[in-house]
Amino acid sequence: MTQVTMTVNGRTASGEVEGRTLLSSFLRDHLSLTGTHVGCDTAQCGACMVHVNGEAVKSCNMLAMEANGAEVATIEGQAAPDGTLNTIQQAFQDHHGLQCGFCTPGMVMSAAALLKDNPKPTEAEVRAHLEGNICRCTGYHNIVKAIMAASGQDVGAIAAE
């Protein structure tokens, strides 16, 4: 067992892990941050996406030890301290960008990474960016719409229904 220490959502977090412990397991099982979900075992679905040192990372595809010393951001740290949703979260609610909610944390973290690098993405850019995030409920329509709305673009022209 090895001691790891990282900053998670602005707070220092430590734990004893095996070499094979995944970052997703460390977040869920050691820190009880269960908003990070595990939907596959081949790094395809993106439900486990978090930010490590500002980059979007699939936390099922990274060892906890690799994140030693890193700044990690998860879905639990996205809303304001008083609970106010951030712009992306609010856009997902406003545009019905989620149904069962399981892929949602990964979608929100993925969208945040996109908008950081590309503040006004086109529809095609949003769709291409979401290649690594699978949603089975929404058919992606309202997720794409929500992300474009979160970027400040007028989505009224998109087929509303």
Partner: peptide, 12 residues
């Protein structure tokens, strides 16, 4: 229900 799902507070 979106609020809990969007903030990681769902209880799966």
């Amino acid at each position: 229900e979106d609020v809990r799902f969007l903030t990681g507070e769902g209880n799966y």
